[in-house]
């Protein structure tokens, strides 16, 4: 890069003249990339790599950081998870199932609805920027805020929603937060409302990157609205889809606050999600070994899902 710049401008940098003093610009290559990467690399090593490796070490012990004895148990924490009726297997897999269901129910609307929103917001009309801000606004709220807000709205006995349903002559005692399948509606609905703005913004940028000339060409060829969407917009958004689908799956699989606050896991354990159970096992019951093992099983599952996702949506052009 440096050499190119020099050639293009034709200006000799002062360093090159002071022969013998400093390095030549071309020599700087050895460490320069690492120096540029260093700030991120340091954070990555300290906050991701080291904890991740240390986590494996922890998962091989019965680990309570305050107890003097941290007995080595080998793979027992992992084997337990795959042994039916062991202490952790049933609740853990129940929570994994809850996470999987939430992901399954929340990803499609979070991929489709923001696209529709983005298509609308990509038109030019008065107040467009206002609406762009409005759709994005909920995303800036914390999960505790939206959780409590929706818990009040969805409360089966005293909630706003049932009150208005009743006022409209509809059933007014729907157990939104305490019974299934309503519980899933109570988790997915607020999540879509809360986070769709983020995906919409990503789509919007993607839409603006599609070459307008392609639309013009399609029009000349007599393509209608739907055909233009199907054959110009969708292929143009392919890399954006991959990004949106991947990040949305990962974000949904990391769900915690909504089920902790809105449904509180009810009924029974049906909506208690994996991250919640792992946090409870590790941070409330102080069984960090088995909690770490569970985290790795969850991480592995997510890695597999992401790989499948990449394989399906791979950008085939080159």
């Amino acid at each position: 890069m440096a050499t190119q710049g020099v050639e293009r401008t034709g200006v000799q940098p002062p360093v090159a003249r002071s022969a013998g003093g400093g390095r030549k610009p071309t020599d700087a290559g050895t460490f320069t990339p690492y120096l540029f990467m260093a700030p991120y690399l340091v954070l990555f090593v300290v906050f991701v790599l080291v904890p991740a490796v240390f986590g494996i070490w922890i998962s091989l012990h019965n680990w309570d950081y305050l107890l003097p004895g941290k007995p080595w148990v080998g793979l027992e924490n992992y084997l337990d998870l795959f042994t039916p009726n062991s202490a952790n297997s049933t609740p853990f897999w129940n929570s994994m199932e809850a996470t999987a269901k939430f992901t399954l129910f929340s990803v499609p609307p979070l991929v489709v609805i923001p696209l529709l929103v983005a298509l609308i917001l990509n038109q030019s009309f008065r107040g467009r920027n206002f609406f762009r801000a409005v759709y994005f606004a909920p995303y800036v709220l914390g999960v505790a805020v939206i959780g409590i807000l929706w818990r009040f709205i969805l409360d089966p006995n005293n909630g706003l929603l049932n009150y208005y349903l009743g006022a409209l002559g509809l059933p007014d005692s729907i157990p939104w937060t305490t019974s299934l399948p309503w519980g899933w509606v109570a988790l997915v609905g607020p999540t879509v409302w809360w986070t769709m703005g983020f995906n919409a913004v990503i789509y919007l940028t993607g839409l603006q990157d599609v070459d307008p000339a392609l639309y013009d060409a399609a029009k000349v060829d007599g393509a209608n609205r739907w055909q233009r969407f199907r054959h110009v917009t969708v292929p143009g958004l392919r890399p954006v889809f991959l990004f949106v689908v991947t990040t949305t799956i990962l974000a949904s699989a990391n769900v915690f606050g909504q089920s902790y606050i809105i449904t509180q896991g009810a009924p029974g354990n049906e909506t208690r999600v994996a991250i919640w159970y792992i946090a409870q096992e590790g941070l409330r019951s102080f069984n960090m070994g088995s909690a770490a093992a569970m985290s790795y099983v969850l991480a592995l599952a997510l890695a597999l899902v992401s790989l499948a996702n990449f394989a399906l949506l791979r950008y085939k052009e080159d």
């Binding site: 909630g159 005692s173 937060t177």
Partner: peptide, 11 residues
């Protein structure tokens, strides 16, 4: 009632 929510009995 069935399906009493968190704190609903108190409210």
């Amino acid at each position: 009632p069935r399906d009493v929510a968190q704190d609903a009995e108190f409210i």
